[in-house]
Design a protein around this nucleic acid. Structure first.
Lengths: 356, 356
DNA sequence: TTGCTCCTCACGTCACGTGAGGTGGC
DNA sequence: TTGCTCCTCACGTCACGTGAGGTGGC
């Protein structure tokens, strides 16, 4: 469109491209778009400069910071698709946040209109509307019926019962896990959990919500941050495992018929033990990785989802309660420490193949 | 929820409210939230501070700048609903802009995927996608069929023919309006306009789009800014009116039967003439305002939209081409200057009533 | 006494905008 | 010569973040 031989001075060029002169100065200072100069120092822009400026404007439109543009502009960057996808996600989050604010504003406007001149401060109606927006974000984890049943619970969530429970666990965190008080707390946890799960659909929703808690709106995250949920969960889980262990070892039936992992698993485990001192990337370890993968496939009947779940459970082993680690180790006729060493070695060996 | 008597130090308070300590320092420095201090200078926050901070956070969420918060917070501001509505519009525009960027990104991702490793630079595909987004904003002015028919014309709009026309008018702007060249340009304008209006629906869409041009996406505004459209339109309009005048005055039929405004209009006009030196807010002028309004209602048969259109035409009289002003004045048996004086007086008098 | 919390400067960030004071070009 | 365009500092904006260097509290 533009004459290839034409050249422009700053003001002309700025108007042509729809930016300000000051912006052009700025890009020049940053070294992002350097025009040639006349003898007296005037900037002179040419057709290639226009093309480059159009690219800058486009990247600006999609929210790329000026400093990040240079590598994208200078070579025809192969990672551009990745940049675009990432940037799209960033913009989508910004849009979602705006959408929540807009809905809150609209709700607040209606509330103020309806409320006319009540005692309630109008600003508090705004705050209330924002709170409701935060809650509504959680809807996506629930089916419609589950949400209808559960929504109101979020208003003062966590409930007073749960708050009291977390406070009590925090106070009891140094108690021995096999004390009566610890066991009473674990019982309370079971009761509270069951009381929450009014229907299976609600329970599913809660689990989905929990799994995605890193994406909750900040306001809800904060309500939770007040309590040390992870520690409380672990406390309960420790107590329950200890209790299970005590019950099973006290039971003569379990003593006579201890649980065992499958024969193939136990054999594989002992072969791992034998190569513990070799290179995890070496041929011996790598042969075992193949067999380990094949065994997994066999056990899951080739079902991908189950396979992934088992791997997730394996990778999460550092978060297992001690009692659970001891139990699993016992299935392989070994102790917790050895089980951990072997597991770590397997993980390292497996990572070496999948990484290449 | 929070204990009314409790007090907090900065870190506790920041965590409680979900903000950073630095933000609290900042609000303190701005005088937006001033805690009390201990003797040694430590900040001490109390329950009322928490309430105020929650309001600050809410206002921040809906995008109110810190400096604008004070008047909203300090008294229970009656203009809050206005603030909310305005702010919502601001956020809606931001969201629309984000939405366009997101769609452009998604389109560009697809284009790159489809294009694989063609010669086209990937960045140009992004630019192209953004351009398409800008165009699609215009869809809202058109019916679906009109859009299907017209959309592709926006791609290189304004068309080369129109560009050439604007360039030629700009070059001819000092020509006498009754020259042959001026008339030739006016004819070209008529032809181009008729060629554009392929169907009535397209014509309607174009008019809607034109009327709302201040809300076009910047990129499209700029495409137009290159040409001085207003001046060109006025040039053509001047030429056409002159031509019409010449034709009618040359025609013996019009000489014998000149156009006339309705009898009631002309009578009212002469009564206005009689009060020109009185106070526009005085009783005489105000009585005429009432009669003027009644006459308008009568002429439009009470149709509100037509009424508004006539008023708009009246208010826009300063932009009429000279020929048109002369013509309209002649309908009232007067000259252009007198017509302008009377019209201005009417406007002033009418504004005095509607304003109170 | 030691480690922790708090304090106040002062400067940085991001993409320019706003002058001030000065010079080249027609 | 005059008015216009251009130049380069230097500082401001907005809502904090990042140290540095220092002091009070248990």
């Amino acid at each position: 469109v533009a004459d290839t031989r034409r050249s422009w001075r700053v003001h002309e060029f700025a108007e042509l491209a729809g930016v300000t002169v000051k912006a052009l100065h700025h890009y020049d200072r940053l070294g992002l778009l350097r025009p040639t100069r006349t003898e007296s120092g005037y900037r002179v822009y040419t057709a290639p400069d226009l093309a480059r400026l159009e690219q800058i404007i486009a990247l600006k439109f999609i929210g790329i910071p000026l400093k990040a543009m240079r590598p994208i502009l200078d070579r025809d960057n192969p990672s551009l698709p990745d940049v675009l996808r990432q940037q799209r996600h960033v913009l989508e989050e910004q849009r979602d946040r705006l959408e929540r604010a807009i809905t809150a504003l609209r709700d607040a406007e209606h509330a103020i209109e309806a409320d006319a001149e009540t005692a309630t401060s109008q600003l508090n109606l705004v705050i209330e509307a924002i709170r409701m927006q935060d809650i509504d974000v959680m809807q996506r984890y629930y089916t419609d019926e589950a949400w209808a049943e559960w929504r109101h619970r979020y208003e003062d969530w966590p409930s007073p019962e749960w708050r009291a429970f977390y406070a009590d666990v925090a106070a009891a965190k140094d108690l021995p896990r096999d004390s009566d008080e610890a066991r009473a707390l674990a019982r309370r946890w079971l009761q509270l959990t069951q009381a929450d799960a009014v229907t299976p659909a609600v329970r599913t929703g809660m689990m989905k919500a929990w799994a995605d808690r890193e994406h909750w709106p900040p306001a809800l995250k904060r309500r939770l941050a007040e309590f040390d949920v992870e520690t409380a969960t672990r406390f309960v889980s420790d107590v329950l495992w200890l209790q299970w262990e005590a019950e099973t070892t006290a039971n003569p039936f379990y003593k006579r018929h201890p649980h065992r992992a499958s024969e193939s698993r136990r054999r594989l485990f002992h072969e791992w033990l034998a190569v513990l001192d070799t290179d995890p990337k070496g041929p011996a370890a790598q042969r075992l990785v193949s067999r380990w993968r094949a065994l997994l496939d066999e056990e899951t009947g080739g079902d991908k989802q189950t396979n992934e779940e088992m791997l997730r459970a394996f990778h999460g082993r550092r978060n297992w309660p001690d009692g659970m680690t001891r139990y699993i180790a016992s299935l392989y006729d070994t102790d917790a420490a050895t089980f951990r060493r072997v597991s770590d070695f397997i993980e390292e060996a497996a990572a070496a193949t999948s990484g290449s």
